[in-house]
């Protein structure tokens, strides 16, 4: 009955796309199946279209990773205000540290030996702190499980 409505000489055309996409009615699917059994041209077109669809589906049309989308998702205003905040805190701490160091070297009554000893102790602590901080920052950057929520 279907064949009476749609003779074989009339190719199925766009229905091939609907067929591979699963967007046809049952009657249309039957018609495409019957037609492709008889028509070499449409059968070849169907195979080519399926191969093309698979090729596009497997292609990498975007090289951007999910992590990059996640990182860039923060609001730019939040990001910039956070950067400014950190900048101000670090600048303030550096100024305070500079004033403290100046007062310690030129203003205190300690001898040069005692001053050098103090500088060595605090310098060592600062060096250890920055070493641990650097290691943590590197780990944080390369840790692929950092976004896993527990």
């Amino acid at each position: 009955m279907v064949n009476e409505k749609r003779p074989l000489e009339k190719h199925v055309g766009e229905l091939l796309s609907g067929f591979i996409d699963g967007e046809l009615t049952q009657q249309q699917r039957q018609w495409v199946t019957l037609h492709c059994d008889e028509c070499d041209e449409c059968r070849q077109d169907l195979a080519r279209l399926q191969a093309l669809r698979e090729r596009i589906g497997n292609a990498r049309l975007s090289e951007v990773g999910e992590d990059q989308w996640r990182e860039n998702m923060n609001d730019p205003i939040v990001q910039s205000s956070r950067s400014i905040g950190w900048l101000l805190i670090i600048a303030g701490m550096l100024v305070i540290a500079g004033i403290g160091l100046f007062a310690f070297i030129f203003g205190s009554d300690l001898s040069i030996g005692e001053k050098l000893l103090m500088i060595a102790v605090y310098g060592g602590l600062a060096s250890l702190f920055f070493s641990v901080l650097r290691q943590r920052l590197i780990e944080r950057k390369t840790d692929k499980y950092k976004d896993v929520e527990i």
Partner: peptide
């Protein structure tokens, strides 16, 4: 949004 990122980019 993260899941849609690549498709939207393409």
């Amino acid at each position: 949004l993260v899941q849609l990122g690549n498709g939207a980019h393409a």
